[in-house]
Design a protein around this nucleic acid. Structure first.
Lengths: 166, 166
DNA sequence: GAAACCGATTGTGATCTGCAACTGGATGGG
DNA sequence: CCCATCCAGTTGCAGATCACAATCGGTTTC
């Protein structure tokens, strides 16, 4: 659907796919929040995405190959969105962007704890996380006993929320 | 000027600053193309940025602290734009984005050679490059004998252009 | 003194965005 | 069966942002 390409530069092409204010947030919520349904993405968003924008981005990302869409067997009307290998490989981009934002922008403590852990964990942690995402979204089995990076990140986030809210 | 913040999430805040199709390209051209004047950025852009968009982005990025503006002593009307420490630290983001784009999008060989070198060089190369950018843009001296990453990248690019054009 | 160059600004339509209301169908409880 | 609720979106609309071309006043070059 991408008939007009401005240039063959990798950075430019990446921006043509994810260079807007919402696409990466949708992927972030699917990736770190494990949100898989339209409603979850719509109402769970910290930033308050509008339903038409969400619908548009889900469609665009699907066309770009960053997301797949499948009916939910448990509910005839529900749709399950999954990450693809391409979007799973955005983990390092997310980590870099999170590290940079954490360092240079007025982030909130609760929401930046995950970025901090991703930064401290480095590439080894990213790889573990990506393997977990492959299991969750692509059904690729992992060896037993592999811990859950997602759970670690979520726990750390909730602990920060509890501390702040106390 | 950023009165409305959608959330304190590092990724969201980063996107509010550089989450559009042009900002990162302007920084890319300053960073990898060493373009420092309005005209250089305007006419040297592979993607053909419009002058009003360029003016707007330069102003926005200046307000966001990613760019500084100074008169050019050699020409009363010229203005020199420089990267700041904040934008220099976008090097890892650029590298991650370049690696991802190179792997998943229809990039051209000439324009992706730099992304490939950045990926192969890894964080050690990025640090050397960032030191070089600090010297070029912030006037921070480096030890003598430190090679030029920028020159290496540019040479590799030109070699690819020559090969393709031959 | 004329031509070229400098960093922008202006005007114009086209596209994108945010917001609220709404759609047709599915589900669950009484 | 009935009705409230939930589901993934769609529609309409106003305002913001976008791309493109022409142009600005001033500076430098020849």
């Amino acid at each position: 659907m991408d008939v007009t390409t401005r240039s063959g530069c990798p950075i430019n092409l990446s921006l043509e796919v994810i260079g807007d204010k919402w696409s990466l947030l949708v992927i972030r919520d699917m990736m770190f929040g494990n949100r898989r349904h339209f409603r979850e993405l719509l109402t769970g968003s910290e930033e308050g995405i509008a339903s038409n924008i969400l619908a548009d981005r889900l469609q665009r990302l699907t066309e770009a190959g960053l997301i797949t869409r499948a009916p939910d067997p448990s509910h005839k009307q529900k749709v399950v969105y999954s990450l693809t290998e391409a979007s799973i490989q955005l983990v390092p981009v997310m980590a870099a962007l999170g590290s940079w934002g954490r360092r240079h922008l007025p982030v909130s403590r609760e929401l930046s704890i995950r970025a901090e852990l991703l930064e401290r964990g480095g590439p080894e942690l990213w790889v573990r996380f990506m393997d977990e995402l492959r299991e969750l979204h692509l059904g690729v089995p992992r060896p037993d006993g592999a811990g859950s990076v997602l759970a670690e990140l979520t726990e750390a986030y909730l602990a920060e929320v509890a501390r702040a809210g106390a």
